[in-house]
């Protein structure tokens, strides 16, 4: 396990990606290691408003000379994320990372399906870029409500192309790519006989539920990255629990955020 640390990080850049989403690039001194699927707890402000840190999946971690660049893709949904969207470059934040587990990226995989819905992209993009570097083949399914909310399309395409994979774009309104849910696009290819060793996914709950159903139909091993309201991120508040198939509540921050779909309780099986 990679050691958790509370890092002083510096805002290096903010880039708008869509009307609601932005990329936040932070610099930490020295090396920071993390695997795709892991997350960090980021402070938004020094005072008590908002009170808690925010949990975000890591979208990328790149070692630079003497420092590390840590990347997040964030959707502006409330006070904390609005503050982050307007954080001054050069300002300092606290980042507790890396936290939780990651996706299974076993080197022997023949072909993986990576599925992202909307702002579920960050851990999937991180996985795609790592897999591209390892020459593990994958197809990347990226869905969003409309063309404006399709994030990092170029990077997704480039990562998939690097390993001879397909980048499948879908929108709910048909404004770009296939006019379908991302899960429908995956289902279509599965029924055409495409075979995957595993599905790795992050996105809104209805998407994950549909994916779980699909995984069961096709006996596909599927890992889902979940988001739950979180206070501490380190397993002590027990606020972020999910219910497992065996009835236990386990903290998403510690036993997740990535769970095999089959381990989750029935509420994930529509």
């Amino acid at each position: 396990m990679i050691a958790r640390r509370d890092l002083a990080v510096c805002v290096a850049a903010r880039t708008d990606l869509s009307p609601t989403c932005f990329r936040l690039t932070l610099t930490a001194e020295g090396p920071v290691e993390a695997v795709p699927g892991q997350f960090g707890m980021l402070s938004c402000v020094e005072g008590f408003d908002p009170f808690l840190r925010r949990a975000f999946s890591l979208a990328g971690v790149s070692q630079r000379r003497g420092s590390t660049e840590v990347e997040f893709l964030i959707k502006e949904v409330g006070k904390g994320t609005t503050l982050l969207r307007h954080a001054t470059p050069g300002s300092e934040l606290r980042l507790l990372a890396p936290l939780g587990n990651g996706f299974s990226l076993d080197p022997g995989a023949h072909r993986l399906a990576l599925v992202a819905g909307g702002i579920g992209l960050p851990p999937v993009l991180f996985a795609a870029e790592v897999l591209a570097g390892r020459e593990t083949r994958f197809d990347l399914y990226l869905g969003a409500a409309n063309v404006a909310e399709l994030l990092e399309v170029e990077r997704c395409g480039k990562a998939a192309a690097a390993v001879g994979g397909e980048a499948v774009l879908t929108t709910d309104d048909g404004s770009r790519g296939e006019h379908a849910f991302v899960t429908t696009a995956l289902a279509r290819r599965l029924s055409q006989g495409r075979v995957y060793d595993r599905v790795l996914a992050c996105g809104p709950t209805p998407m994950l539920a549909a994916l779980t159903e699909l995984a069961r139909e096709h006996a596909l091993e599927t890992e889902l990255s979940l988001e739950e309201p979180m206070a501490c991120g380190v397993g002590v508040c027990l606020g972020c629990v999910v219910e497992l198939a065996d009835g236990r509540y386990v903290p998403t921050c510690k036993e997740g955020p990535v769970f095999p779909a089959a381990r989750l309780a029935a509420r994930w099986w529509p």
Partner: peptide
């Protein structure tokens, strides 16, 4: 003890 169903926590002004 299994604990309560979710959601279990919510942030509030200067607290939770």
């Amino acid at each position: 003890r299994r604990g309560s169903p979710t959601p279990r926590i919510v942030e509030t002004a200067a607290g939770m």
